[in-house]
């Protein structure tokens, strides 16, 4: 066994992910927040925009669910663990910073996928038909990785005060929802809105979900998938690089 080898580090990242799921995700309030937060946002918009079809809004709900759940807890894990000194425990164990970040990403990816499956089931229960199931599954997997990387990116500032990070997190996440074609179709967006939407990975995921349920889309599916893949790689590499830099400042 080479403790520093790639496969061994991935195994240890999985141990961190299991720990995260036990401690941070499998809690009643977290699970309830994961389901209710996007649901209430959706209901609020459903009441306010009766002219939009249900299929459009359900697609948005699926997009929001994955985005909010995959980024809900992960930004606060490092501040929590920094405060409790458990981060120092991890830092003195034979695991790289990359493995710690990967572990946190795996946990938020799984949490995001789990909650999103519930919203997909809600959509199906409300009468929508799934036209492109395999594409939807692939997109959910890819987007969950991408959004969990965003979640970890939000945790980069080396503070051990969770509320600071959650404030920053909300400041970035909510505007992103409004420019990503969830509530306003991309076709109806002004040019400046569309220009902003291009830089949001949520745009591409929502576009694929819409395609999966309604067979309509703004970008070609290949572009959506490729964009999500590029965002995932870039965010993952950047978040690991930045955490490696800032980790000692948390100790």
């Amino acid at each position: 066994m080479n403790p520093a080898g790639f496969s061994e580090q991935v195994r240890r990242a999985w141990a961190i992910a299991k720990k995260d799921i036990r401690i941070y995700y499998l809690k009643g309030p977290v699970l309830i927040f994961g389901v209710f937060m996007p649901l209430f946002l959706f209901l609020a918009f459903l009441m306010g925009s009766r002219q939009l079809p249900l299929s459009f809004l359900i697609s948005g709900l699926v997009g929001m669910s994955l985005f909010f759940t995959a980024t809900a807890v992960s930004p606060a894990i490092f501040p929590w663990e920094g405060q409790a000194r458990t981060l120092e425990r991890l830092a003195s164990c034979p695991v790289t910073v990359e493995a710690i970040v990967l572990g946190d990403m795996i946990a938020s990816t799984l949490f995001g996928i789990g909650i999103t499956i519930i919203t997909v089931i809600i959509g199906l229960a409300l009468g929508l038909s799934l036209l492109h199931g395999i594409i939807l599954v692939a997109a959910i997997l890819l987007a969950a990785c991408c959004f969990s990387a965003i979640g970890m990116l939000l945790a980069v500032p080396p503070t051990n005060v969770p509320s600071n990070i959650m404030m920053l997190s909300s400041l970035i996440k909510f505007p992103l929802v409004f420019i990503s074609g969830i509530f306003i179709p991309l076709e109806q967006m002004p040019p400046w809105g569309l220009a902003l939407a291009i830089f949001s990975p949520l745009t591409y995921f929502t576009d694929i979900v819409r395609y999966s349920f309604t067979d309509t889309h703004y970008f070609p599916v290949e572009i959506d998938i490729a964009s999500l893949a590029v965002f995932t790689v870039v965010f993952t590499v950047v978040t690991m690089f930045l955490h490696k830099k800032t980790m000692p400042q948390r100790m």
């Binding site: 066994m1 403790p3 061994e8 195994r11 240890r12 999985w14 141990a15 961190i16 299991k18 720990k19 036990r22 401690i23 409790a84 000194r85 458990t86 120092e88 425990r89 991890l90 003195s92 164990c93 034979p94 695991v95």
Partner: peptide, 27 residues
């Protein structure tokens, strides 16, 4: 192995789960 001044075991886990986590982190 490291024993810091302030205990940094995971308080939301049992002692056994903490030990198993260490086992996995050390391979």
């Amino acid at each position: 192995g490291v024993v810091p001044e302030t205990s940094n075991a995971y308080t939301d886990l049992t002692a056994w789960k903490n030990m198993m986590l260490m086992g996995e982190l050390y391979g």
